[in-house]
């Protein structure tokens, strides 16, 4: 069964209209951890705001848990949890008060659904008398997640939950999501971080309001068309320029410590020929080896 069905959804802003979401379609299965991956401005937040009934689409249809996002918005609001990208709980209420407040709005109590949020809430419980505005970034995010979960939603929307959060907290956060998934909650999460894509079951790569690809992270990586190499020398920026001008090289992108390159054609001596050529050109400490593509490589490949 599909928990989220999106068919040709479209959203434009302003005059002249700028298309934020360009006729996209995708499905999310019940109990799935689905990721929307894309840079800032790809349309992730617009999609979330439409699915959570905060924004009316300009075209297409979508349903959440079987309810239409326009006609049955009232039913959807009872069934989904939404955690916006920006912290938007009451800063002048305490941790405890925020949680109780949102439970009350959903006609439930904290006690009733405590089991669901217990793992997360226990971490912020020592600060339950503190005002939400005085919490650290990671704590705020945990509180926001608790508040989004307190009514036991069937579908959970998390808009860039890990933006601006440190590496350790990010890791913890994904662990929490996995545990929630085990409880049978369908989770849609958006992130601009490509490395987080592999933590989702299925992902949609978004660029300028369009979906480039939807599949499992493994399949997306598998479908990368070329053999990828990592290359490094002492003169990285010069190397990048040189490789991009090299007629043998198909793509070359900077990737952390290394540059990732692919060749137009690979012969037995392709690697050694390139190394020799670069050595002659004056590069020192050259290193070249085969590497597996990452989601980021796939994304850049699909973008072009």
């Amino acid at each position: 069964m599909m928990d989220v069905q999106v068919r040709g959804l479209r959203k434009t802003y302003g005059k002249p209209p700028v298309t934020a979401v360009d006729t996209i379609s995708f499905d999310v299965k019940k109990g799935e951890l689905f990721g929307l991956i894309g840079p800032d401005g790809a349309g992730k937040t617009s999609i979330f705001r439409m699915l959570t009934t905060l924004l009316l689409p300009d075209g297409g249809t979508a349903s959440v848990n079987g309810f239409d996002i326009v006609k049955d918005y009232k039913f959807i609001r009872e069934r989904v949890g939404y955690m916006p990208g920006k912290f938007s709980l009451y800063q002048d209420l305490t941790v405890e008060e925020n949680l109780h407040f949102f439970a009350t709005l959903f006609n439930t109590t904290v006690e009733e659904n405590y089991a669901l949020v217990k793992d997360i809430y226990i971490q912020i419980e020592p600060f339950k008398k503190r005002r939400a505005g005085n919490l650290s970034g990671g704590m705020k995010q945990k509180l926001a997640l608790c508040c989004a979960l307190i009514h036991r939603p069937l579908v959970l929307f998390l808009d860039e939950p890990t933006t601006g959060v440190d590496t350790v907290s990010r890791k913890e956060f994904w662990e929490m999501l996995k545990r929630l998934k085990e409880q049978g909650i369908t989770i849609l999460v958006s992130t601009p971080y490509m490395d987080e894509a592999t933590l989702c079951e299925r992902i949609a790569l978004l660029q300028e309001g369009k979906i480039l690809s939807i599949d499992t992270p493994a399949n997306i990586i598998r479908s990368y068309p070329d053999q990828l190499f990592a290359i490094k020398s002492d003169q990285m920026s010069w190397l990048l320029k040189e490789l991009r001008n090299n007629p043998e090289v198909k793509t070359c992108n900077s990737f952390g410590e290394y540059h990732h390159i692919s060749f137009k054609e690979i012969a037995a001596d392709t690697e050694s020929a390139l190394i020799n050529y670069l050595k002659k050109a004056g590069h020192s400490n050259l290193e070249l080896f085969k590497t597996a593509p990452t989601i980021e490589d796939c994304f850049i490949n699909l973008m072009n």
């Binding site: 939404y82 938007s88 800063q91 959903f106 006609n107």
Partner: peptide, 13 residues
């Protein structure tokens, strides 16, 4: 301004 209205709007209130 703070964005809390978003959070309120997704509730059935």
């Amino acid at each position: 301004e703070i964005g809390t209205i978003e959070q309120i709007n997704v509730t059935p209130i």
